[in-house]
């Protein structure tokens, strides 16, 4: 059997079944680095293209294809909106907005580059990440942070979409 962990159709998951899948993970990876010299939190988010497409089509009105020759021209707008809906950050107990720097496609993944600016010190970071979990039950959003030379990581899921990290 060719891989067995893919959800097809909204809200339906068959963990004991075969499926259409080009990749074998339900996973996104968010790397957050605190760069003191730049007073910034640098955020990189990696998501599988087909999963993101499934998720966008679950919330949007018009179905889209992404990373193909049929990708709509205004896709960046849709990405920004989606990330703003699904991600939020509180730095040192204050809500902070992020700047969307850009995205690139890397093989079958899309990589987003975001930045939270004007952070002169980092004591705590509250992250809410509901990327894809609304459409994919088994989605795991791994969040890795690096600040003051220390690494911390958490895994966010449909049932646990928020985490508070102290530094």
């Amino acid at each position: 059997m060719h891989t067995s962990i893919k959800l097809v159709g909204l809200g339906l998951f068959f963990s004991l079944s075969v499926a259409f899948s080009n990749h074998k993970y339900y996973m996104s990876l968010m790397q957050i680095d605190y760069v003191q010299e730049q007073q910034a939190l640098q955020v990189t988010v990696r998501i599988f293209v087909d999963d993101l497409q499934t998720a966008l089509n679950a919330v949007g009105t018009a179905a889209v294809e992404i990373a193909t020759d049929r990708e709509p021209l205004e896709i960046e707008k849709r990405y920004r909106a989606y990330l703003n809906e699904q991600l939020s950050f509180e730095v040192n107990n204050r809500k902070k907005n992020f700047v969307y720097l850009g995205k690139e496609y890397e093989e079958n993944q899309v990589v987003f580059y975001l930045e939270i600016q004007e952070i002169d010190s980092l004591q705590s970071l509250r992250i809410k990440n509901t990327l894809l979990t609304h459409a994919l039950n088994e989605q795991e959003n791994i969040v890795k942070t690096k600040a003051y030379g220390k690494n911390k990581s958490v895994v966010l899921t449909k049932n646990k979409s928020k985490s508070l990290i102290y530094f």
């Binding site: 159709g9 909204l10 809200g11 339906l12 004991l16 609304h134 459409a135 039950n137 449909k158």
Partner: peptide, 14 residues
């Protein structure tokens, strides 16, 4: 033995 979760949305068919 499947562990159930409440789905955010069900189609009439599902």
């Amino acid at each position: 033995i499947e562990i159930d979760t409440v789905d955010p949305l069900y189609t009439p068919a599902t």
